[in-house]
Each structure stands twice: as C-alpha cells, then as structure tokens.
Design a protein around this nucleic acid. Structure first.
Length: 114
RNA sequence: GCAGGCAGGAGAGGCAAUCGCGUGGAAUUUUUCUGCGAGGAAAGUCCGGACUCCACAGAGCAGCGUGCCGGGUAACGCCCGGUGAGAGUAAUCUUAAAGACAGUGUCACAGAAAAGAAAACCGCCGAAUUUUUCGGUAAGGAUGAAAAGGCAGGGCAAGAGCCUACCGGUUGUCAAGUAAUUGGCAAGCCUGAUAAACCUCACGCGGAGCAAGACUAAAUAGGAAAGGGUUGAAGUUGCUCGCUGACCUUUCGGGUAAGUCGCUGGACUUGAGCGGCAACGUUCAAGCAAGAUAAAUGAUUGCCACUAACAGAAUCCGGCUUAUUGACUGCCUGUCAAC
RNA sequence: UGGGGUAUAGCCAAGUCGGUUAAGGCACGGGACUUUGACUCCCGCAUCGUUGGUUCGAGUCCAGCUACCCCAG
C-alpha cells in the first residue's frame, strides 16, 4: 500500500501543465502545486532546482520528498495532481521536518481525505 | 627523537529488522522468491582513441596542434628512463628545453648610443688658443631591464683582443654514447634580448558527434503555392579539385514530439609465472561486477564506531587538471643524543 | 549529455600590433554657486573574474580554475 512506482510519476507535458496551472502553497521547506482534475488520478512530480546545490544534494532532496509523499499518499484525495518543489532550507532538514512540512501544506490545500 | 622528501594502498560508515526503488532471472499468473545496484575523482570537458554517419576518408593550399633525446602505447599534449639548465646542506624537486649568421618587426621613458663593426654627455690624453675649439680614446662615471665577452698582466700620449694567461662562448676535429650530450685538442680572438611577435624547420591532424545513427508505429495527411535544379540540387571543412548523383529554399496550413535498438563482455577485473632498470609487454588460471530516461541506493528503530571530507554513472575506454577529512605502511636524506 | 560564448567602477561600456596617469556616460560621495533645492562647474571612486607562467614590463600573449549566458532532440 505504500508503493510508489514510476507509473505514478508525471512525465513530459503533464508535468508542465500542472507546473503552469497549479495553485501553490508554500512554507520554509517546500512548495506544492495542486490541480484538481480527475484525469491526473493522484499523480505526483518532484523538482529540485539547481540553486539548491550539486547533484548529490539535489538527489537527497528529491528522495526526502519522495519518501514524505509515499508514506502519506493514502491519506490524500485521488482526484488531483501534485508537484513538490524543494526550497533552500530543505537542504539541511531531516526527514521528520520534511514530512511535517508536507502534511501541513496538504492541510492548507485541503487535499486530505475527509 | 625532531625536521624534510618520495612511493603506495584505503578513503566513513558497518551489522540486524521493517517499509520502499531500478534492473536481470525463476516460478506462477499478477503475486512471491532471488542475484546485482555509483567514484577516486563518476566532476571540468582540457587532450587522445574506440564506435556511428558523411566516398571505410582521397589530392593541394590555408588553418590548428606538438616541439631536448630514446622508449612504451590503440593513440596522446600522457607515462617511463636519460641529458642540459635552475632550486635545495642533502634526499629530491621544477623545467612549452628546436632555430635569433633565411628574412621581417619590436625594445617605451631615460640615455651620447638600443642594433648590423655604430656612437663622445662627463671624464682621460694630445694640440691649438685662452676658457673655448679641433683630434684621439669605449678603461672609469652617468642612464637603463639590457651597453657590444669577463678578469688580470703587458702595452700606450691616453686607450682598445692591440698582445698574453685563465674562464665563458663559437667553429672544426678526435673519442665515448642508439641519441640528446659529455670529455680532449686546435683555431681565429669571438655580432644583444624577444619566436607563450610574425616566421623557418621537423612531425602529426578530414568533418561532425550516442541529442551520432538505425528501425517500428501513430497522426484529417507521403499537404499546397512560388522560385531554383541532370546545361548538375544537395552533401562532402574555409577555398580549389575530385567523389556521390535528385532533390533543395521560402511562405501558408496542419500535426507529432511515442516506443525499440544503439546500451554495456571490455585496449575488462583478480592472482601467479616469464621478459624489461622502468613505463609496459606476454602466457596461464579464475571471474562477470549499474544500465536509468521527470532519470534507480532512501526512511524508521536497535547496537558498535564517529562527529570525518570532496562528492552521484547517462555510449564506452586511456590520460591530464581541479575538489578533498583524519590517519596508516614502506624506503630515503639532514640534524641532535647515546654506544 | 554535447557544442559555443562572455567577464574592465554600483550600472552601461572603449581599450586593434604588449609600453609606464585604463577613455567616456549615468549613478554615488565631497566642494563651489544659491536664502534653500534643481541646473551648471571642479574633485574623488578600478587587486581589469581569479591563480600561475612568458617578458625588462601584461587589461592585452599562454595555461589552469570560477561564475554567468546561449544553442542542439
């Protein structure tokens, strides 16, 4: 139930569509972009920009965001698409901080299951 | 013991449990089991190849690169050994190190003079005349980054390779060495620097790059108009040849921007023997060790270490360069103390 | 991933063959003029991205590094 295969991850055009049209919610560690659309069916995307650092740092940031999404995705609604973007302070953050930040943003975006 | 030099390996997390990712295999039919899963620099893209397409790659000019000698290599701007020069008490280290009598350019300011055997500002010497002039002179001063071999003696009116000894350089010759070069002898006394200025000489280099390239699907759809074209389109590097031999350019109107291969078994890794001073070569045995495509290594808990770096494969190899924590092993040099 | 380019004052920039105070404009700071401000005038403001090398001498030539920008399916 906690799996996250590559069929659930955005590719190409869909990613750009969500990135351009999504509503954004942000705190110190993360930005999330949300689009309410049945077609996306709970798909997700991750982004870590070049400003964060080199390849090692960006890999770590993406993995932390993947883990935060994977462990909490069952409590989210399925009729939307989400993109997570790392911000500067996530570089030094621990996993628990990232998870807390993600859940917090989901509450504000009202995409948690009722 | 202290100080220093060189070489080398290893480079911070490990084990167990639970959840999870990429890929190969097996079972089974959609769930299980299991193998493997980042680096010494994976980096910068600075060189060299392999591979693919353009004539399996051709000729000339232009252009670019390399530059002591010999060897290694698939190849190199890399590596090893040696020579010269420089630094260090030494071990050792550094070195784009061909040619400046083939030619051309540049050498600011200062200085008399900055390049072809030329030059007299002060000084020195001689002469005239009286405070200036003429002649000789590159030893001394002054200028400069650099002043026409250095230094000593003879010589001279004063001086000068004018003459002599030594040193340095050049040329010739003999010897050693595969060679760079080194050593001896002789000669004439000997014409700056810059080639990371143009250049000369020798050697090498065809162009693009896996987003190369090949194939399969899908898409009202192998669309339309104008112009050029077998009297040669287009490509082949910049030009000229040579070669291939039928499409090309612009505008308008539409779509796709999906998948498979290339994609990892190779100048491979490990061990032993042999040849070589070494780089490296060769023989035998064993082994197979990432292959993604919004892009795989993470999270939690426990124990042990530690607060310890730089950092993530994207076609693949050989180098170089740069980033980098705390130590370790071996050899060598100097110095101090003891024997 | 591959290919190509740029860096000179806070900003925009010139500097062709190496040569001795690195042009110029805007901005900024100080001064003069004015009762005050503006305008005008004068003065000031550069480790030439960085580290080495060649040279008597480097913004310029050569090599390494750093940052930024552009192009290719």
């Amino acid at each position: 139930m906690f799996t996250l295969s590559k069929t659930e991850i955005f590719r190409g055009k869909n990613f750009n569509a969500v990135h351009n049209r999504g509503r954004s919610f942000a705190n110190h560690a993360l930005v999330i972009l949300v689009v309410h659309d049945e077609r996306y069916n709970g798909k997700v995307g991750f982004a870590a920009g070049k400003k964060l650092g080199g390849a090692v740092i960006r890999n770590r940031v993406r993995r932390l965001m993947r883990e935060a999404y994977r462990l909490n995705k069952n409590s989210l609604r399925h009729d939307c698409g989400i993109i997570l973007i790392g911000r500067k302070s996530i570089v030094t953050a621990k996993f628990k901080d990232v998870e807390k930040a993600f859940v917090d943003l989901c509450k504000r975006a009202k995409i948690l299951k009722p």
